[in-house]
Amino acid sequence: MSDLVNPVEQFLRSDRMPHIWCPGCGIGTTVNCFAQALIESKVDLESLAVVSGIGCTGRVAGYVKLDSFHTTHGRAIPFATGLKLANPKLNVVVYSGDGDLSAIGGNHLIHAARRNIDLKVICVNNLIYAMTGGQTAPTTPDHAITSTNPYGVFEPSFNLPHLVEAAGAVYVARWTTFHVRQLARSISEAFKKKGFSFIEVISPCPTLYQRRNKLGDGLDTMKYYKEKSKTRHGAPTSEVGLTMTGEIIVGKFVDRDRPDYQTMMRGQMTESLGDKFAEQAEMVCS
């Protein structure tokens, strides 16, 4: 048995295990899918960087055996933007949570999509602020109980696929942590896209979201995902908003092409400056 090695282990910093995630949490499942996608898509691991923000999902950067950056709360996308622009050869993945990306980092999310920066964003959406103890997020569904809305959430939530499509993303998909094969496939597809890709993964937080809302444990949530998810590729993103116990529309919603930021910059500079435009040299300054 000793020669049996988990195929995803090569992507993990095993010297950092055990991880901090709770039993039943879905983040580890998404990392497994991410690793499967790396195997399937044969991405060059040396030129792959993972950038995370703050929160439970923000810890992903610390566990993957890749060049990895655990940045400040909400700012994974602008950090990743600088990294990508300085070294366009890098494949840059932003791996963070719903609160980090869409609340404190919401402005950067829409502007990166607008610019069509070549980033692959994996947004693990557990519908709550988990690291800090279960506060309301911009994604928390109506009527849910949280520690900061103890009588129920009444403010409308973000429909993230709709938001990023409107802002300009070229690839938008949503799965749950029940859809492990589909998720891995979507991540592989995103690696083939040039431009701003956004994959939302609905994921349980049994410790805070499910428990407070009497939605059962991790297994109950898998059953819910299985029963209530409906795959609708190409669904209009305006129709994929989430409720607490209703249907979850999953699938690939957007797959389109438009020039990414660096292609547009090169085109504009060449048009305006002609031969004087100095194509960005290798920036490594040592």
Binding site: R75, F79, H108, L273, A278, E282, M283
Partner: peptide, 28 residues
């Protein structure tokens, strides 16, 4: 653009002050 490099106008100073750090770790 004639020297070889990049300027990006970000959406706010929060972004600008971390974008530059991403660029540093990318080699600039």
């Amino acid at each position: 653009p004639t020297v070889g490099g990049t300027f990006i106008q970000m959406e706010d100073e929060l972004a600008a002050s971390i974008t530059l750090q991403g660029a540093v770790w990318g080699g600039a």
